[in-house]
Design a protein around this nucleic acid. Structure first.
Lengths: 223, 223
DNA sequence: ACAAATATAATAGTGTTACTGTCATATATG
DNA sequence: CATATATGACAGTAACACTATTATATTTGT
């Protein structure tokens, strides 16, 4: 983006030892992202990751309690990063409509360029979020993890965009539904366009997903 | 629904031995649904299921190749059942708008009463679809399984409702996107309302989800 | 009624997963 | 230079996701 040397700071509840604090920790996250993207979440293991980074399985466990905890960490990192981009993209814009438009665009477009202001490859991370993030919260332990605050960054993004929605139309009754529908929907459409095209209308080389959700937003909010 | 003794017929590609053909097979499906609902997909195993039905793990493997195959079977059964209900609910309705409305309602409402015209508990199955169905197609093997036709029933439902959308507005460019967004969205909202309420606007005892998606549909299709 | 075919149950076994625990060694810090 | 801390190597465990084998029960054909 702007080559700012900004750090996304992640709270201690997401790790045993802060992976950003050591070379090994950063390697775990960096190569971990590549490996999940390559193998898929199910086939990904700490043992395989250990081999890849010429380190040991047990060393990885000193940073993350489990592979689920690692996924939750990545999801949280992603939404903290999106929150930062969201604030950035909506500042100094006078029109509420335009602010919302920029926000929806951010939430629905595929991350194309690697802004890489850290050791994290955001393009790959975006792919992982699209394919695997639901597995982080569609688990039997949601309620417990939600209580621990593990989904806060996602909720915060939704809330921020909700506020923009209500600026455009203060009477609108379902801002949260609209925004979480758009976020999850855009992920699904992205995945469908690559694997189940019968479920979508994406045309080669076109930005149909962004266009569709922008149109949806505008029409549902128009009075 | 109407107490019709109709059978959802499932193609052989979804099983090794047809579970509807024997008492054991029906038990596997019936108790399997209960157990997935209770334990969640991850903790569910054929061994536990074997114990529950006083049968053997190896016997279950003669009906389904794997626990993933079992989930795919259930998902397919569900969408075949929804397709049947969809056809039923839209026949003899003259207005295209009303047909679409009935369809959207069907796709977004929670299955409340047990119509149970078979050994399958549709209320529990609906809960499983909401919580676990994405795990059936968010896997590294999607493309292979899609080629085998394992997601056809879902696609068929989407296509049918798409046709209704185009009857209402033949110029609309994104019918598939709209319908798959509504289907997946309604599942998410349902789950969020129970586990991550900050992501939704569902009020106790109200049908907000249906209402929201009906409004969405109407406004995006209005010319 | 009886043999043959088929279905199911019981059991053992395999390789992997998702860890935990222990101990030795390497590296950093005071 | 001593001590603390981090990492690596390795062993071990219970469970998982199966596969294979054999025994027993049930169904079916004649």
């Amino acid at each position: 983006m702007n080559d700012l040397q900004i750090n996304i700071s992640i709270q201690p509840s997401f790790y045993c030892k802060d992976p950003e604090s050591t070379e090994l920790g950063r390697n775990i996250v960096r190569v971990g992202i590549e490996l999940i993207d390559k193998l898929g979440y199910e086939a990904f293991t700490f043992k395989k990751l250990g081999t890849q980074i010429h380190s040991n399985e047990s060393s990885i466990y000193r940073y993350f309690d489990s592979k689920h905890a690692f996924l939750v960490y990545l999801v949280n990192w992603y939404w903290s990063w999106i929150e930062y981009k969201l604030v950035f993209v909506t500042t100094n814009i006078n029109s509420a409509e335009e602010r919302l438009e920029k926000a929806v665009q951010l939430l629905t477009e595929e991350v194309k360029e690697d802004s890489s202001f850290t050791f994290i490859n955001e393009v790959l991370l975006n792919k992982i979020i699209i394919t695997e993030s639901a597995k982080a919260y569609y688990t039997i332990d949601v309620d417990k993890e939600n209580e621990k605050g593990l989904y806060k960054s996602y909720k915060r993004v939704v809330q921020r965009v909700c506020d923009l929605v209500l600026e455009v139309n203060p009477q609108f009754k379902y801002p949260h539904m609209l925004i979480s529908t758009i976020i999850e929907g855009a992920h699904h459409q992205n995945y469908f366009s690559k694997h189940l095209p019968a479920l979508t209308d994406v045309e080669e080389g076109k930005n149909n997903i962004v266009e569709f959700y922008l149109k949806l937003t505008k029409s549902v909010l128009s009075k």
